[in-house]
Amino acid sequence: MRRITFMQAINEALAQEMERDPTVVVFGEDNAGGAGAPGEDDAWGGVMGVTKGLYHSFPGRVLDTPISESAFIGAAAGAACSGLRPVAELMFVDFMGVCFDQIFNQAAKFRYMFGGKARTPMVIRTMYGAGIRAAGQHSQSLYPIFTHIPGLKVAIPSSPYDAKGLMIQAIRDDDPVIFFENKVLYAVEGEVPEESYTVPFGEANFVREGDDVTIVAIGRMVSFAEQAAEELAGDGIECEILDPRTTSPLDEESIYESVENTGRLVVVDESNPRCSLASDIAALVAQNCFEDLKAAPKMVTAPHTPPPFSPTLEDAYVPDPERIAAAAREVVEGAGARA
């Protein structure tokens, strides 16, 4: 099958949905990049180029915005309530600080607060994660905060295939969806069908099957977990890797199904540890699979610090395959394991 990058997969999803549905619009800072400037109109296509090319294909439906996240994220909510399916870009999720009200008090609340009569079909695309030496205000993995808010859906693709299918599902979904794109994954290639398709929300992907330990990994951590599993397989430890793909809704059932079989859990989460996806999933498993557990669940996360700048420090900050492998080894054969 054809192979394209994670970034191309998102771009293709946007293009195909814009083609299919004239109410889909795309806007954000530099989404065209160059609108109104003397040079090229579509100079950037977003700061990383994800929306590049859409500006000319869909006149009037790809808009640059002033640097006013409150206004244009709120506008996405208003547009969603009045007949559009906007895809707004919050360039880095770290910038949620300047527009969070529009997301969690407005968009997230409408359906419930208005007695089920409002539809808010909007997508907020946002970059997350460490790895590009961008330090404390451009590198956080803040999806737990959004996962915490009822009314929001949260998608975190780990592969080009999922990126396209989850994006199409997000656009067609009638609830506000926060779509997390790990900036380090943009260049990753994978098999992606040319046709449009959806990946449903709330269905974890069994990335790898195994009987010894369940590793739940999110976003970029999925490929790290695969590397760890590969190494452990050499030592006879078979890992089952689950990628939840969406953290809200969360496919609890598949996680329990896997842990019931393996009896061991490692959760890998790039976010900070307190009130994280890792702590949430570990708690759910402890509560619901206690009888099946042969060892205490282990969390592999970033430390409870802001993301550092120094490459040396940043590399130590992000969970890596070695730490994942060590955690898996420990729950299988270490002191934490019980017979």
């Binding site: 004239p22 709120g74 208003g78 009045s82 559009l84 906007p86 009200d101 208005f114």
Partner: peptide, 25 residues
Amino acid sequence: MLGANGIVGGGPPLVCGVGLSAKVR
């Protein structure tokens, strides 16, 4: 009626969205 709003200043961005919707459609 897009809602009374418990957040002071919550409404104006929503109305920008309404305007965009009318314009695009």
